[in-house]
Amino acid sequence: MERDELAAWLRLSLTPQVGSGTARRLLAAFGLPQNIFAQSHGALLAVAAPAQAQALLAEPPGLAAQVEATARWLAQARAERTLLTLADAAYPAALLQTEDPPLMLYLAGRRDQVSRADGWPRAIAMVGSRNATPQGLDNARQFARAFAQQGWTVVSGLALGVDGASHEGALDGAAAGALATIAVVGTGLDRVYPRQHLELARRIAAQGLLVSEYPLGTPPLQPNFPKRNRIIAALSQGTLVVEAALQSGSLITARQAAEQGKEVFAIPGSIHSPQARGCHALIRQGAKLVETAQDVLEELVPQPTSRAAVSGARGERPAQEAGDDPVLESMGHDPVTLDALVARTGMPPPALQARLLELELQGQVGRLPGGLFQRVGSA
Rank of each mutant, 00 (worst) to 15 (best):
T82V: 05
L44W: 13
N224I: 06
R367A: 11
L216S: 03
V114W: 08
S330W: 02
P101G: 11
L341R: 14
D334N: 04
E199V: 06
A258W: 15
P134I: 10
P350W: 01
G186E: 01
G217A: 00
I204Q: 12
F37S: 09
N229C: 11
L74A: 14
L12E: 02
E213P: 05
Q285M: 06
E299T: 15
L368C: 04
F30D: 02
Q285G: 13
P92R: 00
L300Y: 13
T345K: 11
Q256D: 01
A178C: 13
A281F: 04
F265Q: 11
A205G: 07
R317C: 05
I124E: 00
P268Q: 15
T70M: 11
A234L: 13
W120G: 12
A180I: 15
W9P: 02
T153F: 08
A90S: 10
T181R: 01
N229F: 12
R202G: 09
T239D: 05
T85I: 06
P350V: 02
L289K: 04
A354T: 11
Y106P: 03
L289A: 14
Q256I: 11
G42D: 01
A180F: 04
Q142D: 10
G249C: 01
G157I: 12
Q17W: 08
E263R: 01
G169T: 01
